[in-house]
Write a protein that binds this DNA or RNA. Sequence first.
RNA 1: CGGGGCAUAGCUCAGUCUGGUAGAGCACUGGUUUUGGGAACCAGGGGUCGCAAGUUCGAAUCUUGUUGCCCCGACCA
Length: 449
Amino acid sequence: MRFSRFFLPVLREEPKEAEIVSHKLMLRAGLISQQASGLYAWLPLGYKVLRKVQAIIEQEQDRSGAVELLMPTLQSADLWRESGRYDDYGKEMLRIVDRHERDLLYGPTNEEMITSIFRSYVRSYKDLPLNLYHVQWKFRDEIRPRFGTMRSREFLMKDAYSFDLDKERAVEAYNRMFVAYLRTFRRMGLTAIPMQAETGPIGGDLSHEFIVLAETGESAVYCHADLLDKPVPGPDIDFRGDLTPIVDDWTSLYAATEDMVDLAEFERTVPADKRISARGIEVGQTFYFGDKYSAPMKATVTGPEGQEIAVHSGSYGIGLTRVVPAVIEAGHDENGIVWPVSVAPFEAILISLKVGDGECDAACERLYNSLRTAGIDVIYDDRAQGAGAKFATADLIGIPYQLIVGPRGLKEGKVEIKHRKDGTRETVGIEEALKRLLELIVPARLETI
RNA sequence: CGGGGCAUAGCUCAGUCUGGUAGAGCACUGGUUUUGGGAACCAGGGGUCGCAAGUUCGAAUCUUGUUGCCCCGACCA
């Protein structure tokens, strides 16, 4: 992508409506644009990040055995009357009437619809286990939207729904999602800690919130410090095997949100120097809720002895439009965003220090072409601007590697690579630049897996 | 929904108290010189001061209403 042809409206001033750093940076770096309270347009740079986040989530969901589909945003009220939630959900649910006076709603979640799909097609226990998920926009008419896309009214969520014959197998499904979540967040450069959580209106009795520690988080959380350094299962993890030891290992150390915390137990089970009492951002939540929906909605299968069994289910959500600000809260400095390579909108930025200089232009064009050919997601800053402005922009939008090309270096056949993360620079021969960037970027694409 | 605040150029803001011809910086347009850490100079364009009513000879400024946005609480991916 050539910068001069891209649409990247960066702001030099701090937007007055933003309070927290991620919201400020998302506006300043041209990731999002507010259209109304709690409603945001994703500008090209932000949309690239969102899609990279989505790709990682999909890879890890698929790896765990879940199957992707796509359900509509609008749902029939009748479906929700079946589960009893049409009346329970309250004003948070956006209710719509169509031209035939039929009651519709903009889905805040999809338990009812997925249960309806499930019961239409699945008849036998032999078709289980099944885990279906989608990534779709949701709407919840929050009383007070805030912090940009951290708490917006319309938001993009991955929601998965598992169906199993009994509780034991449902917990196995729960564990698969639990491990998939550990991997998913780690791949985005996040340290997300699973914590005991309330189940809220979704219902059920087993639930974890995946929390990223951040001062700007909306929940107070309490956990054991060792959870921060606990290794995450690698890509070779066998999701068909027994994951109980991993889940037990993670849940053996105390971790709970303010709604669930038992301070006496926290202090009894965690040594004083290991107690973390902090704030966190909830980026995902897992629930097991048994037959809460399958029983009233008659989602049953025929069991091995011919009996009708209401399936045991769980649901598992990740807020994509919340993950993006969470990544920024976890990775930024005074100059702007510091993206991990895995979700960076571009992996590298090619900065020409002297646009219009024949030799410099030629070298940049050559590098740009070879980088693209090698599969590096690169943006080429070909604007006729001073170097200062270009560096400031590159830092603000947080591109992990800056390839800096200027006439002075070119005289000696050298270019420079600057690492956004720690500001280190290395000078390499122009012919070595591509190889060096590949060395840096390719392993980082898998980010700490 | 309760409490607080803001609304003037694309952005950040001054001007409002004390009514009298609409301002700055950045951004934008044209030109010249520039280009190694947010370039300089010259010349320009751009605002029915959120909206509506009222008071007044005269309203960005005073009054009332209204809408939008932000912050604090309850809700949540």
